[in-house]
């Protein structure tokens, strides 16, 4: 218990360090799935560990100590009261962050449902007559692709096929759900922030690779990205320009080389790293139950 219960925190940091490395080396389809799964498992284990640490406070309460004495088992408390208290506070913060993230996701989904509600049935592409170049996938059953007229007129026919294939890949491979899962994981465990960023980037790369495969031309795919990015940056207000993470440039550079190998061994190692906190948390749970004889008989 003494070490197990703290391990998810350490492993979160480790995953955040290793995640971006895997993201750079492995095929995006593999890396995105592995990192998202590992992040969800780690976040769940971290929250559970906080719960255990906070629950250990119960072990400090007089009734439990008395009960333990009566059972002839004097308690040696492995979790100092201060840490239990801190864990309790952290748990409240985690709950608030998850609540906020869920609410943001819900409001987004509602807004998008309103957008798609008025469209004729069986239509994949929704065009918005807007001067702001924009393209995005709207998950759902069926998923839709929303593109503005400004974005469509910026691209040539082959580039438009890339755009549509890219958004279709998002819908076909459930990228919305993957990003939602990793966003909630990062809300629960802020140490996983870098893993979330990596997954958000990876689903774009994944869709780029699918689009390149569908259109059968990596160069046209790279060109479509460059054209769309330039057109979008021209239309953007100056204040929004601070927000740049070189994502598009990195995606274009990746398309100008050959597709990355899957690297399953490395990916599985990262997945194992993600499972570890859950196992250790389970072990710590056993220890805690053992510590509370007054509660568990």
């Amino acid at each position: 218990m003494r070490y197990d219960v703290y391990s998810p925190l350490v492993l979160s940091l480790l995953l955040s360090a290793v995640g971006p490395v895997l993201a750079r080396r492995a095929a995006p389809a593999v890396a995105a799935r592995v990192l998202a799964s590992a992040a969800v498992l780690t976040a769940a284990a971290t929250a559970w560990s906080l719960l255990l640490l906070a629950a250990a406070l119960i072990g400090d309460t007089p009734p439990v100590i008395r009960a333990a004495r009566e059972h002839g088992r004097p308690l040696t408390d492995p979790v100092p009261g201060v840490i239990g208290l801190a864990a309790g506070l952290a748990l409240v913060v985690v709950a608030l962050r998850i609540h906020r993230a869920v609410r943001a996701q819900r409001s987004t989904r509602r807004a998008l449902r309103r957008l798609t509600a008025g469209q004729p049935a069986g239509t994949e592409l929704i065009v918005a007559a807007s001067e702001v170049p924009r393209a995005l996938a709207i998950p759902g059953r069926p998923g839709r692709i929303l593109v503005t007229s400004a974005m469509l007129s910026a691209l040539d026919p082959a580039e438009r096929r890339v755009l549509l294939a890219h958004e279709r890949a998002h819908l076909a491979h459930g990228h919305g759900a993957l990003v939602t899962a990793v966003t909630l994981a990062a809300a629960a465990d802020p140490l996983l922030g870098p893993v979330r960023s990596a997954v958000v980037f990876l689903v774009e790369r994944w869709a780029d690779e699918r689009a390149a495969a569908v259109v059968g031309d990596r160069r046209v795919t790279a060109r479509a990205l460059a054209r769309a990015a330039l057109c979008a940056s021209r239309a953007r207000t100056p204040c929004a320009l601070h927000f740049t993470d070189r994502a598009v440039t990195r995606r274009i550079a990746a398309l100008r080389t050959s597709p990355p190998p899957s690297r399953w061994p490395a990916a599985l190692a990262v997945l194992a790293l993600g499972t570890l906190p859950a196992l250790l948390a389970a072990d710590a749970t056993g220890d805690l139950l053992h510590l509370l004889p007054g509660l568990c008989g």
Partner: peptide, 9 residues
């Protein structure tokens, strides 16, 4: 939560 085709430059 959305997948945007491109971001800033």
């Amino acid at each position: 939560a959305l997948q945007q085709f491109v971001t800033g430059l």
